[in-house]
Simulated scan of single mutants.
Amino acid sequence: MLDVTAGQSAPVGGVVVDQERLTLLFVIYNERLVRTLRGRLGSRWELAEDIAQETWAKVVQKLDTCRASDDRAFPWIAVIARRAASDYFRLARNTRELPTDFGAEGPVGLAPAFGSPVEVDVHEQVALDRLTAFIRGEMEVAA
C-alpha cells in the first residue's frame, strides 16, 4: 500500500508518483470504476475487482501522462481499464486448454471456466460432439 503524505511524491516501482493526486483519483473514481467493470462483466464481480486493481497499478505507472484535470480523469482511467480487461481476456484465451485426449478416464473438464455465454455454448457443443464421438468409438469397439 502507498504511504500517502500530502503534497509529496515518492518512487513506486521505479516511477515517481504524485501520491496526493493518486489518492484523490482513487477516492473519487474507484467505486465508479469497479461498478462500471461489474456492469460489463456481469456476475464475475471478483474479476471486475481484479481488473480494477490492475487498472490502478497501470494508473500509477502512467499518472504523469494524464493531462486531464482530476474531476475529468475518469475517461482516461476507463481507457486503461478497458485495455487491462482486454489484456486479461487475451491472456486467458491464449492460455486456455481444451481437452483433446480422453484416454481411459473419459472426458474431463469439457467446458471452459470462463467466457461469454456464446463462447461457452460453442465450447459445450464441441465438447458434446467429442463426447458423442468418444462414446460411438467405445460402442463400436465393444460390439
Rank of each mutant, 00 (worst) to 15 (best):
D87N: 14
L110N: 03
N30I: 01
D71V: 02
L98P: 04
D70R: 00
V118F: 10
D18V: 08
I80R: 03
G137K: 01
A142Q: 12
W76N: 01
R67H: 09
F114H: 03
A85F: 03
T55G: 02
A92I: 10
L33F: 07
P75I: 14
H123G: 06
V17I: 15
A48C: 12
N94G: 14
A143H: 08
F89K: 05
I51P: 04
Q125N: 08
E119A: 08
R83G: 14
R83D: 11
P117C: 14
V59F: 04
T23A: 15
S69P: 01
L25F: 03
E46F: 03
A127F: 06
R35G: 11
T95I: 04
L2T: 13
E49P: 01
A68P: 00
A68L: 12
K62N: 10
S9I: 11
K62V: 08
R32Y: 08
A6P: 05
L25H: 06
A6M: 09
E49Q: 06
D3F: 14
S86A: 15
H123A: 08
E54N: 11
C66P: 00
R72F: 07
R21F: 06
A104R: 06
D50I: 09
V16T: 15
P107L: 15
F26V: 10
Q8S: 12
G14C: 09
T5Q: 13
R72A: 08
E20K: 00
F74L: 10
I28R: 14
L47N: 00
R130D: 14
E46T: 06
G39D: 02
E124Q: 11
A92E: 06
S9C: 13
A84L: 05
F134A: 12
R44A: 15
L25V: 01
E140S: 12
D70G: 13
R93L: 11
V120S: 02
V122T: 10
D70V: 10
E49Y: 00
I135C: 08
L47A: 06
G137I: 10
G109D: 11
F89C: 03
P107C: 11
W45T: 13
A111S: 14
E105Q: 12
E54L: 03
R38Q: 15
C66M: 15
E124A: 08
G103H: 09
S86F: 13
R35N: 11
E31M: 00
W45Q: 10
L98G: 01
K62E: 05
V27F: 02
G137N: 10
R82P: 00
V59P: 10
S43C: 06
D121M: 13
E97R: 09
P99W: 06
F89N: 00
V4T: 12
V15W: 04
L24P: 00
A111V: 14
V16P: 00
P117W: 05
L110E: 12
D18L: 05
V17Y: 05
V60G: 02
G137H: 09
L63Y: 00
G14A: 05
A111P: 03
I51H: 00
A48N: 02
